[in-house]
């Protein structure tokens, strides 16, 4: 997206974002920019506020202060109708899949098509089967219930659901957590392929470095509620940031101390 002045407006721009839960300051002034079409992966240990950051951007959580701009529009002060407009641009893959277990697989995938885009059910069903094929699932799974699928299959269905409405911005919350390494890299490959096909901007959070290297154009590391390093994925091994160094090498000793409480 290019503004009248000629410089390009970031797809997502976050300034000084703060959020506390009770006495715990989870986000303490996060600054982040994601260009259109870029895939940014945020890495960081458990309980460092990665999920909270994503939920703030989507609008599931309201920040205490700071600014979140999507396509140059401030979202933190938006009314419900504008927020709904913005929501149409989003697709999200949840950590546990978050499939609706009361609905069969195809209705999960076609949920946005039926409920939001008001597509006829028969058409939505055949569209859902096409999208399932894109994530490597046969048409037979369409009528199964999500509970009958393995974890990897559920992730794929969830990915299918999040790409079905052709979002402009995709969020991936720990896409490989709980999967074996092979299924993990299959999901990563599907994510890269889907994001490329959609031409979408992607924001992922993970603590799996192998996965981060496969998905990311850029990587940002969050620690103590702040972004402590960000740069292209090629530079991560040569940066002399002690936090990044400790994290990617998985060392117990270093500036990052284990937190017991979230």
């Amino acid at each position: 997206m290019t503004s009248a002045a000629g410089y390009s407006v970031p797809k997502i721009q976050i300034r000084e974002l703060r959020k506390a839960f009770g006495p715990k300051q989870v986000l303490d002034g996060v600054d982040l920019e994601i260009a259109a079409g870029e895939s940014l992966v945020i890495i960081g240990g458990s309980g460092t506020g990665k999920s909270v950051l994503i939920k703030n951007i989507i609008g599931l959580i309201r920040p205490d202060s700071g600014s979140i701009m999507i396509d140059g529009r401030e979202t933190t002060t938006m009314g419900a109708a504008d927020r709904e407009d913005i929501m149409h641009k989003f697709g999200m893959l949840f950590q546990g899949g978050a499939l609706f277990d009361s609905l069969p697989v195809w209705q999960n995938v076609a949920f946005g098509l039926i409920q939001v885009q008001r597509m006829a059910r028969a058409a939505a069903r055949s569209r859902a089967i096409e999208i399932l094929a894109q994530v490597g699932l046969p048409a037979e799974v369409a009528d199964l219930s999500p509970a009958e699928l393995s974890g990897g299959m559920q992730k794929r269905v969830s990915l299918a659901r999040s790409i079905a409405t052709q979002p402009e911005i995709m969020f991936f919350d720990e896409p490989t957590t709980g999967l074996d390494p092979i299924m993990g890299s299959v999901i990563d490959a599907l994510i890269v392929k889907s994001v490329r096909e959609l031409g979408a901007t992607a924001l992922s959070i993970t603590h799996d470095m192998a996965s981060a290297r496969r998905i990311a154009d850029h990587i940002a590391m969050i620690h103590g509620g702040k972004i402590v390093w960000s740069g292209p994925v090629s530079e991560i091994d040569h940066c002399d940031n002690p936090y990044v160094d400790q994290f990617i090498n998985g060392r117990a000793e270093g500036p990052i101390q284990m937190q017991v409480k979230r």
Binding site: I58, L60, G91, M92, F94, F100, G112, V116
Partner: peptide, 16 residues
Amino acid sequence: TMRVTEQIDALTTLST
């Protein structure tokens, strides 16, 4: 259960 398995958040992200 829908709340703790993030299904309610998923509904919101699907504009519902």
